[in-house]
Amino acid sequence: MTVLGPNESILDPREAALGTEGLVRRFGEVTAVDDVTLAVPSGELRAVIGPNGAGKTTLFNVVTGLLSPTAGRVWFEGTDVTDAPQYERPHAGLARSFQSNELFTEESVLENVRVVVQTAEYGPFGLDLFRDAASVGRERAVEILDRVGLDAAHDTLAKNLPHGDQRRLGIAMALATDPDVLLLDEPTSGMSPGATTKTAALVEDIHDSLGLTVLLIEHDMDVVLSISDRVTVLDQGRAIATGPPEEIRTDDDVQEAYLGGIREEL
C-alpha cells in the first residue's frame, strides 16, 4: 500500500461505507474543512489525525449533519445523505460521540443509554404513552454498559461520573443507536495513560467483535499506530495524506505538516 495524497481515495466515495466528495465547510473567513474527499471501506478502523484546529471535529460535524457543508457531498452506504436531517442519520446506522462530554447530565447512567436504545427502537419520534419507560430497552442498555465497563455505575447521575467514565458513557450512547459506522471524537482525551490503553482496547473490541466501521479522531500516536487500519491526516482543513499507519508515520508531507507540531511524537 502507498500513501495517497489529497483527493485521492481508496475507492469511489459513493461505494464506501462512508464517503465524502469535495467537502467544504467555511466559518466566515476560516475554511475549517477544505475540499476533502474520503472513502472509508466497510469494516475499516480509520484514524483521523492532525494538529489542533485542523478541522477534524468540523469534518465529523458535517458528516453527521450537525453542520451543513458549504460545498460537497456526503455518502453513506451508497446513499447521498448530504441533505438528510441530522436526527435521521443514527437510524440509518451512522452514529458519533462528541469531543466534549455531551450527556443527559441530570439522568442516571443507565437512563442515558436506555433512552437512546428506546430512540433506536421507536425512530425519530415515538408517541408511546402507555408503557412504563423503565422497562423499554433496559436489557440492551445494561448489555452495552457491561461492554464499556460501566456496569457498576448504573444509578450514578451522569454529571457525577469521573471524566474518563463520562467519555466511555459517550461511547456507550453512540453504540446504543446500533450503528454500522461509528465516529469517535477523541475518546481518550483527558485520560491517564492507563485509562487511555483501556479505552483503546475498548475501541478495538467494538471494531473487531461488532464488525463496525470506525472513524477515530485520536491524538495519542501509540493508540493510532496500534489499532488503526489506515490513517488520514488533516491539515488546515485538507486531507493531505491517507495510508497505512507505518507509512504515514514516515511520509515526508506528513512530517512537513507537523513541523513544530507533534513531529517528535511521530
Binding site: L66, Y87, P90, F104, V115, Q118, T119, G123
Partner: peptide
C-alpha cells in the same frame, strides 16, 4: 422520557436520533 432528554441536552438528543 424523550421530553426529558430534550430538556437535558437538545443537541445530544438530536445526534442520538430524536
Amino acid at each position: 422520557r424523550s421530553l426529558v432528554a430534550v430538556r437535558e441536552n437538545e443537541g445530544l438528543a438530536r445526534a442520538m436520533g430524536m
